[in-house]
Structure formats: structure tokens, C-alpha cells
């Protein structure tokens, strides 16, 4: 006997969404895995463990980590300021936060390169101070941080808006200092949202291409990111190698998202009813 459902439209909506997930996400990814798998284990391993590929993983992952950590702090601060204070231009700042989403990443990359090039507005003074940004991993970090900032701001902002001011007042009345209230009350409540935003930002940084290639210099073994390496293989018509390298990125992203989802579920235990 089929159970009757109160909410109508399940077969239709489920059918349509699954069809689209299959067509737009699963099919291309499946093709990628298929292409990579056609290499055979030894050839596959040789490609993905080549010195140049490993160097590209290191640059990509370390830069993404640095960019995400930076955004974790800066994005939280930005969300905090946007929610907690009213100041002239708050709405403008709020709107600007989304610009990295809207801007073509190549445009962002060119703009950042112009600014941070040795003869640019920021690049010149920084070079005098001994810091070279363009064509170094620092440039990669900046490009990644630029394109992934909105993820953290936009995930934390609604949670911060919903945070009951009475919680902080209660903590204050119990003698908590501002610092202890932040660490013991506010941060743990924001943590699941921060985690979600962080994982999205990290995933985006791993996959970022357009913004980075202009500022990175793209020197193999030092400033060549994995996405670019896959692209170079494509240009060489070596589709299997490109797919192999891409599959490493795919697996990394998938594992990372799975881990953060687990952490998030753990952090949200307290919302479960018995």
C-alpha cells in the first residue's frame, strides 16, 4: 500500500531535480572520472604524482588555506560590523561584498595584477618594503581571498542577525568579559555557519582559475596552480592527463566537503531534540 503524502508534487519535483543533478553535475564529473580511469593505474599514478603536479597541489592547497584563514577572520569581522553597527554607507558596503561573485574572475585577476604589479599602486610600495606580491604565492592568496570572501560573510551574517541579544546580556550579567563572551557564547553559536562558509570558500579557492592566472606568474614548481596545470594539459590535447589531474582536485574537494559536513553536524548536535 502506498502511503498518502500531505505535501503534493513529490514524484514530479524529485524527478526534475534528479534529472538536472544528473545532467548538469553528475554527467560531466562521470565523464571526467571515466576519462581518467581509461589511463590505467600505473599511468594515472605517474601523472598525478609527477613532481610538477605535486608542486601544483602544494601551491594550491597552501594558498587556499592561507586565503581561507584570512577570510575566516576578515569575513567574520565584516559580517559582525555589517550586522552590529549602523554607519553611513553600511548598505553600500553590504552590496560591495557580493561584487566578487558578480565580477568575471578574469577581470578581478587583471585588476589585482594591475594593483599589485611592481609598478602598481600597492605593488610599488610593497616592493620597497621588500614584499613581492605579483607573480608569487602571495598574489595567489590575494586572488583566492578576493573571490571567496562573500561565502563566509553571507553564511555568517544571517546567523549573527538572529543571535538573541539577551544571550550576550545574560553572559554579561553572569560576569563574563567581552573576550570570554565572544569565545564561549558567540563563536560556538556561529561555528556551524562559519564552518559552512569556510568550506565553501576553501572549495572555491581550490578551484579558482581566472583570477589567479594573471597575478600568479604561473611558474611551474612555484606559482603554478593545479587548475592551470590541467588546463595546460588540455591545450596539449592530452585529455587523459588533464582528467587525471582534475580528478585529484575533485576527490580533494569532495573529501573536504564531506569532512566539514560531519563537523557541522557534530557542532549542531544541540539543536537535536531527544
Amino acid at each position: 500500500m502506498t502511503r498518502r503524502r500531505i505535501i503534493p508534487g513529490l514524484p514530479l519535483s524529485l524527478g526534475i531535480t534528479l534529472f538536472y543533478v544528473g545532467l548538469i553535475i553528475a554527467l560531466p564529473l562521470g565523464a571526467l572520472v571515466f576519462k581518467a580511469a581509461s589511463l590505467g593505474p600505473e599511468a594515472y599514478w605517474n601523472i598525478i604524482s609527477s613532481e610538477r603536479a605535486v608542486a601544483s597541489y602544494r601551491v594550491t592547497v597552501l594558498s587556499a588555506l592561507a586565503a581561507t584563514l584570512f577570510n575566516l577572520v576578515f569575513g567574520l569581522a565584516l559580517a559582525w560590523v555589517l550586522v552590529r553597527y549602523s554607519f553611513p554607507g553600511r548598505r553600500l558596503v553590504d552590496a560591495i561584498v557580493d561584487l566578487p561573485f558578480a565580477l568575471p574572475t578574469a577581470v578581478a585577476g587583471i585588476a589585482l595584477t594591475t594593483l599589485f604589479a611592481p609598478n602598481g599602486w600597492f605593488g610599488g610600495p610593497l616592493l620597497e618594503a621588500g614584499i613581492r606580491v605579483a607573480y608569487t604565492p602571495i598574489g595567489i592568496v590575494i586572488a583566492m581571498a578576493f573571490t571567496s570572501l562573500p561565502f563566509i560573510v553571507r553564511t555568517v551574517q544571517p546567523v549573527l542577525e538572529d543571535l538573541d541579544p539577551a544571550l550576550e546580556e545574560a553572559a554579561q550579567s553572569l560576569g563574563g568579559s567581552d573576550v570570554s563572551i565572544f569565545w564561549r557564547v558567540i563563536l560556538p553559536i556561529l561555528w556551524p555557519a562559519l564552518l559552512a562558509g569556510t568550506s565553501l570558500a576553501f572549495a572555491r579557492s581550490l578551484g579558482e582559475f581566472g583570477a589567479i592566472i594573471f597575478i600568479a606568474g604561473n611558474q611551474p614548481f612555484s606559482t603554478e596552480i593545479t587548475a592551470l596545470l590541467a588546463f595546460i594539459r588540455l591545450e596539449e590535447y592530452d585529455y587523459q592527463a588533464a582528467a587525471a589531474i582534475a580528478s585529484v582536485m575533485l576527490i580533494t574537494a569532495f573529501v573536504m566537503l564531506a569532512v566539514t559536513n560531519l563537523m557541522q553536524a557534530r557542532a549542531l548536535r544541540y539543536t537535536a531534540r531527544t
Binding site: 538573541d164 539577551a166 544571550l167 546580556e169 560556538p188 553559536i189
Partner: peptide, 9 residues
């Protein structure tokens, strides 16, 4: 507080 303001976590 009226709505308890217990720390949910």
C-alpha cells in the same frame, strides 16, 4: 529573561 536566554550550545 522572559525567553530564558539559555546558551543553546
Amino acid at each position: 529573561f522572559q525567553h530564558y536566554a539559555l546558551f543553546p550550545h
